[in-house]
Amino acid sequence: MLNVEKLSKTFKTEGGEVHAVRDVTFHAADGEVVAIIGASGSGKSTLLSLLGLLDAPDAGSIEMNGTQLANLDSGGRTKYRAREVGFVFQAFNLIPNLSAKENIKLALEFSNWPKNDRDARADAMLAMVGLDANKASRRPNKLSGGEQQRVAIARAFAAQPQLILADEPTGSLDKATGQKIVQLLREAANTQKTTVLVVTHDEKIANQADRRLEIEDGALTEIA
C-alpha cells in the first residue's frame, strides 16, 4: 500500500521557481496498475523521482506499507531503491557492456539477493518476460527495442520490489510492441503483487491501467 500525502517539489531556475509537483496526494494498492497521464513538463518524471527516492521532496510524506520514507537517511534511501523500487525507463537504460542476464543480476546484487539464488532468479525473470537463453546472453545492442524493454522489466521486478515506476516505458517503441510491454507490466504486477505506476501520454496505454491519474502543472487529479 502506497500512501502519498501533500507531496511538493519546487526547482529554482534562472527563470524563477518551477513548482514541478504541488500538494500531490494519492493512494495505490498492492498489485494495482495506475496510469499517470499529463503533458510534457507537467511534472510526471519529477513525481516518479520523488517516489523512487532519487530526489528529496520539499514537503509531504510517502508511506510504503507502514514505513515513512521521508525519514530515511542516505543509506536507507539507497537500500530502499535497491530492494523496494524498480525503474523502467523510456530509453531502457540497460548497461551496454553487460548481457541481458547480467543486467538482471546487477539488480539482484544491489538488493543483496542470496548469492546462490541469483542465477536461478535471473533465469526465472527472463522466462517471465519471454526471453530465451540465446537472447539472455546478448548485449543490449544485439536486442530489439522491445526485447531491451523486456530485459528492463525483468531487471525492475527481479528483487521483488513493492513498487515499480515506469516513466513512459512505451515511448521508444511502436504501438504493437508498446501494447505488449504494458500487458507484461500488468501480468507481472498481478503475479508479484507489486504496485505499478506507469507514466504515459498515450490514451490507449492509460486505458489498460486499473486507474488513471492526470497531472497538470504539478497538480494531480483522479480521472473517473
Binding site: G52, T78, K79, A82, F87, F89, N93, I95, A107, F110
Partner: peptide, 16 residues
C-alpha cells in the same frame, strides 16, 4: 554519466 545515474537508481551505493 547516465550509466552512473542508472546504477544509483538501481540501488548501487556511491562506494560501489
Amino acid at each position: 554519466r547516465r550509466e552512473i545515474g542508472v546504477l544509483k537508481a538501481l540501488g548501487a551505493t556511491n562506494r560501489s
